[in-house]
Simulated assay, not measured.
Amino acid sequence: MDTNEYPEVTIDSLPYIDHEIGYEGMRAKVDKLVEQEMRKRSNSKRDQALNFPSNFEFFKNSPILATEYQRVQQGKAIVEMDTSRYKLSEPDNKEDVESWSKAVDNSKSQLQHQDLRLFNLELLQKYGANAWRLHNFQLEHELQQYQKTLEEYRQSILELNKQRKTEQAGSQIESLELKWTKMIGQTLQVEVACASLESELRQLKQREQELIAQLELVNQNDDDKVESQPNSEDEAEKEKEA
């Protein structure tokens, strides 16, 4: 098959019609034929899907994930999160006023952070349960929608398969196969009859040759008799004269 002539050809099968695939050794034979055919279709969509681009760039819109993916690709160890900012430690130089000022600012930040955590916990305790119930309700609604869509797709696939089966005319193929078998039988009968007639014709020709040969032999004997008659008359006259 020429790929340029049929660029959009998709190899398909009719498992509900082609029952021969279940015969012993048939599947291996079919797989071999398909493999040979696919080798000719180097530019097919199947080969394009298998030839995944090597320069594909992941996480274009997420620099953080892109950096992490690059780190994993390079085999580098993960960088631990810096927790020093969450520690309340006194400065090393206790005489340095600026260091103490930074330590106090850090303690205020930690206190504000803890205050915000307590506030968030109070909000979670007050509204968290209802928020989760609402979220679960939304998820259940989405699940129902997905299930409905899935069922519609399944029904569509079922109808499509029925349509394909009708269009591919399984009964018509079986009828044509029966007709083909009947015609093959009739052709064999005609061939046998022809062979019989040819044999009879050869026998008739042989009989004709035999009859011709016999007729020629009879004609030759008659000619010999005719030639011998004058000689007998001459001999009779000579005997009279004597």
Rank of each mutant, 00 (worst) to 15 (best):
Y127F: 09
S101Y: 01
R71H: 04
E237P: 00
A49V: 15
G170Y: 06
V97H: 08
E142D: 02
G75A: 03
N4D: 10
A131M: 04
R27N: 07
Q220E: 06
K162T: 01
E98Q: 14
S196Q: 05
D234S: 10
E151V: 01
D222W: 05
T187M: 06
A129F: 04
A66I: 01
W132Q: 09
Q74V: 09
Q36A: 12
Q155V: 05
Q172G: 14
S171Q: 09
A49D: 07
E8C: 02
V9F: 15
P63A: 01
I184S: 15
N231F: 12
S13A: 10
L88D: 15
V218H: 14
Y153R: 08
Q138L: 07
I21L: 08
I64V: 08
N120R: 12
K205M: 04
P230Q: 14
E200A: 10
Q48D: 05
E24A: 11
L121Q: 12
E152N: 08
Q74T: 10
V34S: 01
L178I: 10
Q145R: 11
Q168N: 08
S44P: 00
G170A: 08
E233M: 13
Q74G: 09
Q36C: 12
E174P: 00
D115G: 15
T187I: 07
V9P: 02
Q214D: 10
R41K: 06
E8T: 09
K108N: 04
Q220I: 01
E216H: 03
A213R: 07
W132Y: 11
Y23V: 03
L143T: 14
S54F: 06
S101N: 07
K29P: 05
F59W: 03
P63M: 03
Y6V: 08
S232M: 09
R133N: 13
A131H: 05
A169H: 09
M38K: 15
L215S: 10
E90L: 12
D234W: 13
L123A: 12
D222E: 06
L88Y: 05
T149R: 09
K45T: 04
E227D: 12
L215C: 12
E151L: 04
I21Q: 08
E98P: 00
R39F: 08
I157T: 02
K76N: 11
Q206R: 02
S62L: 05
D115S: 13
I184P: 00
S89P: 01
L160F: 10
Q189E: 11
F58Y: 10
G75S: 01
L211C: 06
G75R: 08
K40T: 05
M38C: 10
L150G: 06
R117W: 14
E237Q: 06
S228L: 13
L139D: 01
L121E: 14
I78D: 02
V192P: 00
L178Y: 11
N61P: 03
E159L: 03
A213V: 03
D82P: 00
V72S: 02
P7T: 00
G25W: 09
N55K: 07
K182P: 02
K45I: 01
S175L: 12
D115W: 15
L121D: 13
G170C: 08
N61S: 10
K40C: 03
L88N: 14
I184M: 11
Q203I: 06
K87T: 00
Q172N: 09
P7R: 01
L150W: 04
R39C: 06
K76L: 10
V9K: 06
E174I: 13
